[in-house]
Simulated scan of single mutants.
Amino acid sequence: MNFEPVLENKRVLLQPLQASHLDALWKIASDASLWAIQLYTIDSKEDLEKYIQIALTDRATGVSIPFVIIDKQDNRIVGSTRYMGLSLPNKRTEIGATWIAPSLHGSGLNKAMKYAMLRYAFEELELNRVEFKTDELNTQSRNAILSLGCTQEGIFRRHMITSTGRIRNTVYFSMLREEWPEAKQRVFGKYDF
């Protein structure tokens, strides 16, 4: 299997994450507002370097496919995302660890990116399930996931401890392979990706 695919549509380009992306990503990751309701925080360039190295190690072991997000309108790196928890024998993955420059929140970039990733997961990898998880407190993320056509499955109470020590409840969502054609048409059909 190709663990370094390139995904693209008219709005977004997802390229395999590399260690050389550190400086471009630090310009975005240094905005503390990105980490306000996250499981972890990136407080320094060294933190980001460790974050990238973990993602690259996960790719090498076949459990993650990390990307940098490039906004094609400006032709610049604007964040990162990945397939994670990849289980090919069970034909499932999670789309997560997504962070995008705050100036692009609500711009349609995230929807274009998720379209590219869902399409690849269901139509190329032929997975049966794509999962999404977010902090119960992150209403922006919860609403964005629901707007993709995903189903909320439940809340794992007292599920994780964040880097700040807060005990997090995690909301689980999914989309199934048989739900993709309808979501592709209903949710994404109105966009020109």
Rank of each mutant, 00 (worst) to 15 (best):
A36V: 13
K27C: 02
P66M: 00
R158K: 15
L88W: 13
A112Y: 10
K114F: 09
M175R: 07
L17F: 11
Y83T: 08
L7Y: 02
I65Y: 00
R166A: 09
T139E: 13
G165R: 13
D192E: 15
S64K: 10
P66V: 01
D47W: 11
A97F: 08
A19E: 14
F67W: 03
P181I: 08
I100L: 05
K111Q: 10
Q38R: 11
R158A: 12
L7M: 08
F156I: 06
D135W: 04
K111A: 11
D47V: 13
D192T: 12
F132R: 04
L109P: 03
R76H: 12
L176G: 07
S163F: 11
R92H: 12
L88S: 08
R177Q: 15
Q73F: 07
T81F: 06
L34C: 06
S30V: 09
F156N: 07
S87K: 14
E94V: 04
L86M: 11
V130D: 02
A101G: 09
N90S: 09
T61G: 07
G154D: 05
P16V: 08
T57I: 05
V68A: 00
M117A: 05
K45T: 06
I52C: 01
D31G: 04
V6L: 10
P102E: 06
S174L: 11
P181D: 08
V12L: 02
I145V: 05
D47A: 12
Q15L: 13
L146T: 09
L176I: 13
L56D: 01
L48F: 02
E153K: 14
L14G: 04
V12K: 01
E123N: 07
K91A: 14
T57R: 08
E131M: 10
T81V: 09
L137G: 08
A19D: 07
R168M: 14
D31I: 10
I167L: 14
C150A: 15
S33V: 12
K72E: 00
E123S: 01
L13I: 00
A183R: 04
Y51E: 02
A101R: 03
